[in-house]
């Protein structure tokens, strides 16, 4: 397949290896916690076909607390709703048919999506798929290890494994996003503040979606660039028309 030889895909693959290792450890946690609730096979199948970390943990938490399948799916789906704005951001950068864009969207995880963000709101979708590629098999393998070795591992929280993903996202934010300039720092601070304000009482998943508000300061950025003397008023009017339509 030509995609596998594409330089962007390969670059993404290399960038994705540290995250794949973190994924392996976290999915081991998932396997350990899911085994007593879901049995041996179901957690591995779930990691293979759903492959959505936070949603899997969210659904598991509901089932473990004795909740029904509808409540579990609702919790997991809310945690996944951030993929809607993420996908809307990603879509315009994928050339080709709707079917292809749909398939590329299935390769979207937080890490690879954020790493594929480029200047001017574009995304390198080949890089994204490359960065997801090593994490996926290790996520499945980690789940299996967790299911099989749960008795040896004991309580995963005792090992501090639940601190792995936030620490990894912090590394990602500091090494990539925030170096993109002061506006990215402000957007991150706003997004984090919105999430922190909502976490205590909003349903799981909502705080992260609401944090998209932080990105709206980008509207002002456009206005500032416009004020530098480029004749773009017409273009902006057209855009507003599109948004309203």
């Amino acid at each position: 397949m030509s995609l596998l030889r594409n330089p962007s895909f390969r670059e993404g693959f290399h960038a994705g290896i540290p995250f794949a290792i973190a994924s392996f450890i976290l999915s081991t946690t998932f396997g350990v916690l899911a085994h007593p609730v879901m049995g041996a096979i179901a957690p591995i199948v779930m990691s293979t076909i759903v492959y959505a970390g936070s949603a899997q943990f969210g659904a598991l938490a509901v089932l473990a607390a004795g909740g029904g399948p509808i409540a579990a799916v609702l919790a997991g789906t809310l945690l996944n709703m951030r993929y809607l704005p993420m996908g809307i951001a990603l879509g315009p950068s994928i050339e080709g048919s709707a079917w292809k864009r749909f398939l590329v969207g299935q390769g979207m995880i937080d890490f690879s999506w954020a790493g594929a963000a480029r200047e001017g709101g574009r995304f390198d979708w080949r890089f994204m798929l490359g960065a997801t590629a090593p994490a996926y098999p290790l996520w499945v393998a980690g789940t299996a290890v967790g299911v099989l070795a749960g008795d040896l591992i004991g309580d995963p929280d005792r090992l501090g494994l639940d601190a792995i993903f936030p620490a990894f996202f912090l590394a990602l934010l500091l090494s990539g996003e925030v170096s993109a300039g002061r506006r990215a720092v402000v957007a991150a601070l706003l997004g984090g503040a919105v999430a922190l304000a909502l976490v205590p009482f909003a349903p799981a998943g909502i705080p992260v979606i609401a944090a998209c508000i932080g990105a709206l300061i980008g509207l002002d950025e456009a206005g500032r660039r416009g004020a530098a003397g480029e004749p773009e008023e017409l273009e902006e009017l057209e855009e507003l028309g599109e948004l309203e339509a």
Binding site: R82, P85, M86, A89, D110, W113, A114, A117, E119, G120, G121, F165, P166, F169, L172, L173, E177, V178, A180, R183, A184, V185, A187, A188, L189, L190, G191, G192, V194, A195, P207, V208, A210, A211, C212, I213, G214, A215, I217, G218, E221
Partner: peptide, 11 residues
């Protein structure tokens, strides 16, 4: 362009 930092910080 600013969605990624905002979402990452929230996560």
């Amino acid at each position: 362009e600013l969605l990624a930092p905002a979402l990452l910080a929230a996560l």
